[in-house]
Design a protein around this nucleic acid. Structure first.
Lengths: 212, 212
DNA sequence: GGACAAATGGACTTTACATGTCTAGCTGTC
DNA sequence: GACAGCTAGACATGTAAAGTCCATTTGTCC
């Protein structure tokens, strides 16, 4: 048997290599997510996570210095992955509205929906803001920039008319995000987009679509 | 506002009365069940249960002396309620087979299915045997008696023929229960009866149905 | 075979938190 | 005002999780 747990089938594992280390980290984070979702941060123990990952508690500490570190790494990865998908969505086909809608749906699906079903959702979000506020806020900032840019380009092409509502792209992007987060706060977070979200998108569309 | 949390709407609560005390107990057990199902016995704290019941931790200790007491009370109530339903099922319409099938389905639905979905099912059953073995075994005994009686009566009426398999009602009842518990052990516990259970019931029916 | 890396089980200290108890105080009823 | 029910909060105590460390095992490579 190989000494490395994370061989890809058929290929020997060159340990001491970065790929394996990274795979191990990913594997652990994959295992940790459902544990955190199920129990929340506090009730989830390092033993739980180690068991879920199929490794020993000692090994867990070889990859992460602390439970908080592990959580931060998980949060960071989720934000990184989701933002990559969001960028793809924004570069896709369709109108600005379609692409923004897709982008936001992706964002929700990646960063909110996975926890929304959990009774520990509140605690998890609180812990996330306590341990990974920088990542979270930076990501939100970046999403804002991406939306602004999309709106700006659409305005430049005449696809939308921001003059009608006297708004800068950045302001409008801010409104969109705020509305989405508000809607998610009130209603539960379904996967994808809810009715309220779609209604808001129709409002937006109606407001900035150029006449004629 | 009334000083009693558990008024039934429209009727003043006469505290110091047994009804209210019992209602409170029931209310707490109702609240405690999902907490135990969600977290298992160990991870579920008295604070969790108090919060779920909408009362203070101190009040919880006015109703129950300990977490173990509370669990025992919950287990006892579940067994009591379920056995009452089982008796109804056994007195119902249809053949012995139908009634036994219904009885067992009721038993499973009341005492196994609620926990079967939980990842903590194993721990909960272990804790139950540690804290409420008497209740559990007594209930199982009682179920055995009820099934035996049903089989006995059916045999007396000529509805079934136990001579064909050379079995006493009690032995057959024991086999049925053992088979059910084995099936539930192997397969997951769905609500109601699974395919395996139904197959077993067909076997039983075929084996003891009198010829002609 | 020996050197080496990775992972493990287990022992250990420290720290956090849950249990169970108690008291003083609040709220609404009679 | 007396009383009952509930509460918040403090408390001592015990359990267990966090984090650290090391001896040992397992498998790889030379």
């Amino acid at each position: 048997m190989s000494s490395c747990l994370f061989d890809t089938v058929g290929s020997k594992c060159q340990c001491v290599c970065m790929i394996s280390t990274e795979q191990k980290t990913m594997h652990i984070l994959d295992a940790a997510l459902p544990v955190f979702v199920r129990f929340g941060f506090r009730k989830a123990t390092m033993a739980d996570i180690a068991r879920a990952a199929g490794i020993s508690r000692a090994s867990l500490y070889l990859s992460f210095n602390s439970k908080e570190d592990l959580f931060r790494a998980g949060s960071a990865r989720a934000h990184r992955q989701t933002m990559a998908e969001v960028e793809v969505a924004l570069k896709g086909q369709g109108s600005v509205f379609d692409r923004i809608e897709a982008a936001i749906a992706t964002f929700q699906r990646g960063l909110i929906a996975p926890f929304g079903g959990s009774a520990e959702a509140r605690e998890l979000f609180e812990v996330n803001m306590a341990l990974a506020a920088d990542i979270t806020l930076e990501t939100r900032e970046r999403l804002l920039d991406l939306l602004s840019l999309a709106l700006h380009e659409a305005a430049a092409k005449g696809e939308i008319d921001l003059g009608a509502v006297e708004a800068q792209p950045a302001s409008l992007a801010g409104i969109i995000l705020a509305a989405m987060s508000g809607i998610k706060e009130m209603r539960g977070a379904e996967p994808g987009l809810g009715d309220d979200t779609r209604l808001f998108m129709r409002l937006l569309r109606a407001a900035v679509t150029p006449p004629g």
